[in-house]
Design a protein around this nucleic acid. Structure first.
Length: 289
DNA sequence: AACACCCCCTGTCGGC
DNA sequence: TGCCGACAGGGGGTGT
């Protein structure tokens, strides 16, 4: 599930339960996910208070008292759920995939926050807040697309001279942080740009923005904002931390819609699927140039 | 530097 | 039915 809108939805879902609470106990049920857990993971977390829940790119960041940050990445299939210990709180029946509940954070407020990840491409790190920006997973991460910096001019500077296709350039986390396969496809469709177009062609010499760059920047922002507002996309029954479903998948115009009529008014095209750098790209060859 | 691949792992779905 | 291959929201690491 997790591109920027989904991770942001998870962050917002965890925030009210986690911020202000102490981690009373950590159940770590295996030694590794994608990477081994940090040494003494459970012990170092126990007793810490969560001061804030943040996000950078597709990473969740739980700021702890004492100066450490619990870094969590959901990979392809990671999710959190919250089970409150209060009477009358609705509990979802998750027994069927309890086998993939890898970590449970028991909080001082009675809530239990469980990390589930069937494919185990997710991972957790424990790093000092002060040096997190220099960590090798963070130091090269690009601009946050929902911040103030992303506009046509920046996009043009980032893509100037690039021969790589727009699809690859937009997926590159060192340029723009947080886009994944879905939102790249959706952004390009809205902007009417072919995923196969060389990224450099939306910049003039010297990185000056073209109308295409301005439009693409606007479409990226628009798609992400709409998706966040919808609570992200729920594919394969993926849920938010509170158990509810995001619904942006109903607004996909091209992603996973191979063979469907293009939704651009009077376009008449059919959504195609092609492979780019080993992953599916969905687009309309008629209105995306 | 800038790609292109491969891989990690489990679950699901379509075709035969 | 069952089996088998293709594919799935990510991204680190290696090799050219």
């Amino acid at each position: 599930m997790p591109e920027l809108p989904e991770v942001e939805t998870v962050r917002r879902g965890l925030e009210p339960t986690m911020v202000g609470a102490r981690i009373a106990k950590v159940e770590q049920r295996r030694a590794d996910l994608r990477f081994p857990f940090p040494p003494d993971f459970a012990r170092r977390l126990t007793g810490r208070r969560v001061e804030a829940m943040g996000r950078r790119a597709k990473y969740l960041l739980a700021d702890l008292d004492g100066g450490d940050v619990l870094v969590m990445h959901l990979g392809m299939s990671g999710s959190f759920r919250i089970d409150a210990d209060a009477p009358g709180v609705f509990h979802h029946d998750r027994s069927k995939d309890a086998a993939h509940d890898h970590v449970v954070f028991h909080l001082s407020n009675g809530a239990a926050v469980t990390y589930n990840d069937p494919r185990r491409f997710g991972f957790m790190l424990l790093e000092e807040r002060a040096s997190l920006a220099e960590h090798k997973f963070f130091r090269d991460i690009g601009v946050e697309p929902l911040g103030n910096e992303l506009d046509g001019a920046l996009l043009a500077r980032l893509f100037d001279g690039k021969a790589a296709p727009l699809k690859a350039a937009l997926l590159d986390q060192t340029l723009i942080a947080g886009l994944g396969n879905i939102y790249v496809c959706e952004s390009l469709h809205r902007a009417g740009l072919s995923p196969r177009r060389a990224a450099g062609t939306i910049a003039r010499k010297g990185g000056v923005a073209t109308a295409r760059a301005v439009l693409l920047a606007r479409c990226i922002r628009e798609v992400l904002e709409e998706a966040v507002a919808a609570g992200g996309s729920s594919l394969r029954d993926h849920r938010r931390a509170d158990g509810s479903l995001g619904y942006f998948q109903h607004n996909f115009r091209v992603y996973d819609r191979e063979g469907a009529a293009c939704s651009t008014p009077s376009c008449g095209g059919i959504v195609k699927r092609v492979a780019q750098s080993g992953r599916s790209t969905f687009f309309c060859g008629v209105c995306q140039r």
